[in-house]
Protein backbone atom coordinates (compact mmCIF):
# COMPACT_ATOMS: atom_id res chain seq x y z
CA UNK A 1 0.00 0.00 0.00
CA UNK A 2 2.84 2.40 0.76
CA UNK A 3 2.85 5.20 3.28
CA UNK A 4 -0.24 7.36 2.98
CA UNK A 5 0.14 11.10 2.68
CA UNK A 6 -2.21 14.09 2.71
CA UNK A 7 -1.08 17.33 1.10
CA UNK A 8 -2.53 20.53 2.57
CA UNK A 9 -1.78 23.59 0.44
CA UNK A 10 -4.08 26.23 -1.03
CA UNK A 11 -2.14 26.19 -4.30
CA UNK A 12 -3.27 23.60 -6.82
CA UNK A 13 0.06 24.10 -8.55
CA UNK A 14 1.98 23.20 -5.39
CA UNK A 15 -0.25 20.22 -4.62
CA UNK A 16 0.32 18.91 -8.13
CA UNK A 17 4.08 19.17 -7.88
CA UNK A 18 4.13 17.47 -4.48
CA UNK A 19 1.81 14.75 -5.67
CA UNK A 20 4.09 14.15 -8.66
CA UNK A 21 7.20 13.87 -6.49
CA UNK A 22 5.54 11.57 -3.94
CA UNK A 23 3.78 9.27 -6.41
CA UNK A 24 7.04 8.78 -8.31
CA UNK A 25 8.58 7.40 -5.16
CA UNK A 26 5.72 5.07 -4.31
CA UNK A 27 3.98 7.17 -1.70
CA UNK A 28 0.23 6.93 -1.69
CA UNK A 29 -1.30 10.41 -1.76
CA UNK A 30 -4.72 9.75 -0.26
CA UNK A 31 -5.96 13.32 -0.05
CA UNK A 32 -5.29 16.87 -1.16
CA UNK A 33 -6.80 19.69 0.86
CA UNK A 34 -6.90 23.35 -0.13
CA UNK A 35 -8.07 24.66 3.24
CA UNK A 36 -8.10 23.88 6.92
CA UNK A 37 -11.71 22.73 6.79
CA UNK A 38 -10.99 20.31 3.96
CA UNK A 39 -7.92 19.08 5.80
CA UNK A 40 -9.91 18.23 8.94
CA UNK A 41 -12.52 16.40 6.89
CA UNK A 42 -9.97 14.25 5.05
CA UNK A 43 -7.99 13.65 8.21
CA UNK A 44 -10.98 11.80 9.70
CA UNK A 45 -12.01 10.06 6.48
CA UNK A 46 -8.68 8.96 5.06
CA UNK A 47 -6.40 8.76 8.11
CA UNK A 48 -3.09 9.54 6.41
CA UNK A 49 0.22 8.53 7.99
CA UNK A 50 1.89 11.79 7.05
CA UNK A 51 0.57 15.29 6.42
CA UNK A 52 2.50 17.89 4.47
CA UNK A 53 1.06 21.13 5.76
CA UNK A 54 1.47 24.59 4.26
CA UNK A 55 1.50 26.93 7.22
CA UNK A 56 -0.38 29.75 5.46
CA UNK A 57 -3.91 28.81 4.49
CA UNK A 58 -6.91 30.87 3.47
CA UNK A 59 -9.22 29.87 6.29
CA UNK A 60 -7.05 28.93 9.21
CA UNK A 61 -3.88 29.50 11.08
CA UNK A 62 -1.50 26.63 10.33
CA UNK A 63 -0.46 26.41 13.97
CA UNK A 64 -4.06 25.97 15.16
CA UNK A 65 -4.62 23.35 12.50
CA UNK A 66 -1.46 21.53 13.60
CA UNK A 67 -2.66 21.55 17.19
CA UNK A 68 -6.14 20.23 16.49
CA UNK A 69 -4.71 17.60 14.14
CA UNK A 70 -2.35 16.26 16.75
CA UNK A 71 -5.03 16.38 19.43
CA UNK A 72 -7.42 14.16 17.48
CA UNK A 73 -4.77 12.07 15.69
CA UNK A 74 -1.63 12.03 17.85
CA UNK A 75 0.14 9.47 15.64
CA UNK A 76 0.01 11.38 12.40
CA UNK A 77 3.36 12.87 11.40
CA UNK A 78 3.12 16.47 10.29
CA UNK A 79 5.69 18.06 8.02
CA UNK A 80 5.48 21.83 7.81
CA UNK A 81 5.99 23.29 4.36
CA UNK A 82 6.50 26.98 3.88
CA UNK A 83 8.43 29.65 2.09
CA UNK A 84 11.33 31.66 3.38
CA UNK A 85 10.45 34.40 5.82
CA UNK A 86 8.30 32.12 7.95
CA UNK A 87 11.08 30.86 10.22
CA UNK A 88 9.47 32.03 13.51
CA UNK A 89 6.27 30.11 12.74
CA UNK A 90 8.24 27.06 11.66
CA UNK A 91 10.10 27.10 14.97
CA UNK A 92 6.82 27.32 16.83
CA UNK A 93 5.36 24.48 14.78
CA UNK A 94 8.32 22.25 15.56
CA UNK A 95 7.90 23.08 19.22
CA UNK A 96 4.21 22.19 18.97
CA UNK A 97 4.84 18.71 17.65
CA UNK A 98 5.54 19.02 13.91
CA UNK A 99 8.11 16.37 12.99
CA UNK A 100 10.02 18.21 10.26
CA UNK A 101 9.83 21.01 7.79
CA UNK A 102 10.36 21.52 4.09
CA UNK A 103 11.22 24.94 2.83
CA UNK A 104 9.86 26.24 -0.48
CA UNK A 105 11.33 26.13 -3.02
CA UNK A 106 12.20 22.48 -2.58
CA UNK A 107 13.84 19.87 -4.73
CA UNK A 108 12.25 16.43 -5.16
CA UNK A 109 15.28 14.94 -3.40
CA UNK A 110 14.77 17.17 -0.38
CA UNK A 111 11.08 16.23 -0.10
CA UNK A 112 11.85 12.53 -0.31
CA UNK A 113 14.75 12.85 2.13
CA UNK A 114 12.51 14.51 4.72
CA UNK A 115 9.78 11.90 4.31
CA UNK A 116 12.25 9.03 4.47
CA UNK A 117 13.75 10.43 7.69
CA UNK A 118 10.34 10.13 9.35
CA UNK A 119 9.89 6.52 8.40
CA UNK A 120 13.20 5.26 9.70
Amino acid sequence: MGTTVMIVDDSFFMRNILRGILSDKGYNVVAEAASGIEAMKYLHDRKPDIIILDIILPDSNGLDLLESTLQSHPHVKVIICSGIGQEPIIQKALAHGAKAFIQKPFTPEKVIEVLASLEG
Binding site: M14, I56, G83, G85
Partner: peptide, 26 residues
Protein backbone atom coordinates in the same frame (compact mmCIF):
# COMPACT_ATOMS: atom_id res chain seq x y z
CA UNK B 1 -5.40 37.78 2.25
CA UNK B 2 -3.09 40.08 0.30
CA UNK B 3 -0.18 38.69 2.23
CA UNK B 4 -1.24 35.15 1.45
CA UNK B 5 -1.48 35.84 -2.29
CA UNK B 6 1.98 37.42 -2.39
CA UNK B 7 3.33 34.57 -0.31
CA UNK B 8 1.83 31.89 -2.56
CA UNK B 9 3.15 33.59 -5.66
CA UNK B 10 6.60 33.78 -4.16
CA UNK B 11 6.62 30.09 -3.33
CA UNK B 12 5.33 29.08 -6.74
CA UNK B 13 7.77 31.29 -8.63
CA UNK B 14 10.70 30.06 -6.57
CA UNK B 15 9.66 26.48 -7.29
CA UNK B 16 9.58 27.24 -11.02
CA UNK B 17 12.94 29.00 -10.62
CA UNK B 18 11.67 32.33 -11.86
CA UNK B 19 13.91 34.23 -9.48
CA UNK B 20 12.94 37.79 -10.39
CA UNK B 21 9.22 37.01 -9.97
CA UNK B 22 9.93 35.37 -6.62
CA UNK B 23 12.03 38.34 -5.46
CA UNK B 24 9.39 40.88 -6.38
CA UNK B 25 6.62 38.85 -4.72
CA UNK B 26 8.85 38.44 -1.69
Amino acid sequence: ELFRHAHSLKGMAATMQFASVAELAH
